[in-house]
């Protein structure tokens, strides 16, 4: 039940990301305004109050990042970001991408070939006693 709830929450966050970010932005902004209003009541100028309030919040972007990384779905979110970044990098440098693909292909191919050879020559004996004595 709780798991289902968390998965739903994570998906909701991923799908409505822009809206959620805007809400968080607005929420932090109201934090600053409320805090500044309190300070102005103590006789501090508006400018100074806003400055102190921002200081108290500790950086909108830092708080946003902490909220983001603390949510369910943050891992998935990071993963899709990495994927997007990788595909962008690769399409921007097609030769680089081709080199990687060929290198991987050759590497895997060579490994498979050699393992195939060793497997049949050294690892897999016939299912009889002393197979080397068979004629």
């Amino acid at each position: 039940m709780i798991l289902l709830h968390r998965v739903a929450a994570a998906l909701r966050w991923l799908l409505r990301r822009k809206k959620e970010e805007q809400h968080l932005d607005a929420e932090l902004q109201t934090f600053i305004e409320h805090s500044a209003a309190d300070k102005m009541r103590d006789g501090i100028s508006r400018e100074e109050a806003l400055r102190l309030a921002r200081l108290e919040l500790g950086g909108i972007d830092q708080v946003k990042e902490r909220v983001r990384s603390n949510r369910y779905g943050a891992l998935l979110d990071d993963f899709t970001r990495d994927l997007r970044f990788a595909s962008r990098t690769l399409t921007r440098n097609p030769y680089f991408a081709a080199t990687i693909v060929v290198t991987l292909a050759l590497g895997i191919g060579a490994n498979t070939a050699i393992f195939g050879l060793i497997d049949s020559l050294m690892l897999r004996w016939l299912p009889v006693k002393d197979p080397q004595d068979l004629v």
């Binding site: 709830h5 929450a9 932090l28 109201t30 500790g58 902490r66």
Partner: peptide
């Protein structure tokens, strides 16, 4: 610290322990 408060609030909301609504303060 707001850097601890807000992550906690969002976590609680995602867990369904809190519900939020926007209204004039």
């Amino acid at each position: 610290n707001p850097g601890s408060l807000f992550p906690s609030l969002y976590r609680l909301e995602q867990d369904g322990k809190l519900k939020s609504e926007w209204r004039p303060s």
